[in-house]
Design a protein around this nucleic acid. Sequence first.
DNA 1: CAAAATATGGTACACTATGTATCATAAAGT
DNA 2: ACTTTATGATACATAGTGTACCATATTTTG
Lengths: 207, 207
Amino acid sequence: MKNPDEDLRVRRTEKALRNALISLILKKGYDAITVQDIVDEAETSRVTFYRHYKDKAELLTTCLDVVYQDLVTHMAPCSLIDFHSDPPPVLILYKYLEENMALYQAILSSQGSLMVQKRIRDYLIYVVQREIVEAFPLHKFPLPVNLVALHIAVAEMGMLLWWLDNPTAYSAEYMARVSHTLNFGGVLEGLGVKLPLNHHSEMPILR
Amino acid sequence: MKNPDEDLRVRRTEKALRNALISLILKKGYDAITVQDIVDEAETSRVTFYRHYKDKAELLTTCLDVVYQDLVTHMAPCSLIDFHSDPPPVLILYKYLEENMALYQAILSSQGSLMVQKRIRDYLIYVVQREIVEAFPLHKFPLPVNLVALHIAVAEMGMLLWWLDNPTAYSAEYMARVSHTLNFGGVLEGLGVKLPLNHHSEMPILR
DNA sequence: CAAAATATGGTACACTATGTATCATAAAGT
DNA sequence: ACTTTATGATACATAGTGTACCATATTTTG
């Protein structure tokens, strides 16, 4: 046999272990889980576990890969910077998270949350930046595009994460709309104040 | 003796334990640290450790309290929504983080990072919201003020956190200025595009 | 289908770290 | 000076980790 990953048994046990970890995270939180718990849930043995993963953290990493891929798949079709579309494109993300609320609340509170957060953030930055340069070809930007993309990404994401902590505060639709409005209209629009913003005209800026 | 916290010995050992944990986090990261490591560094005994803290996590919590308080103290004098001031008020935060780069990089990558992040986020939301309503008394806002404050807070914070990961990309001054510009001018200003944004006039929105 | 290859499960073991109990001593507080 | 109490040393029970070995079951391959 060339590749051991092709073995039915391997795929089966690894999948069982991943599923076991996820459901245990939902049940009792990552920290409280032992390898014994995982293999009990997966109906396999501790020895087998260690044949596949160095430790609990390594299994978590692969789980997060799977979840991350799922998330990326679901957000692929939505153009985040299409600021004319109604409903706002980010609504797709809110809806997807709403459907998998428990999972993402658990994942984003787990050990590996930082890693996932950064991966999602960096993916968002990448996507947004690509969309911007595609939408404005040949345009000369006054600010570095990656920083603008960063700003959009972290703002959208920050509001999403806050919403996961406070899911009953507002509906997904409302959150998406407000998020979109503030990003593209700016805070002052959101506050409904019109000022003589002459400092904006001589804005940016060298470093 | 009324309060055991007043005992010199108690204050001394607790401080030594906190300092030990912090320097160990900087040296080898939170996860790899054992209680034995901590008491070795603090030059005390394991038994003493357990008389003060339930476990490593509890000590971390108190450390984070201290760090958090320090951070709050340093950002207290800066009004985040003063959008005319130059340099932008958030520069104070960037400067403070720059001085304590190693510490905050370590802290915000540690176990308790999520907790700290949320506390900082919520504190920022609180501060920004208070500033907004003070700056615009009697004003009728088209969007919920707490969401506007949330947006500002997570955007500023997201850019700060990204900068901690990429400290050499831009200077503190530049980051602060861009962050400020995008928040208050909005992304479209940052991109230097003027559109017939008529959809903004009929913007918000009921839920 | 048979044979070779290999993943699994059971048991046992060494090791590390945790958390607690006890008691003599040192260092605070009064 | 006297009392209170925090500390440190030792010892111990417990839990969890990671590995070794071997018989068995299952899958792949020819």
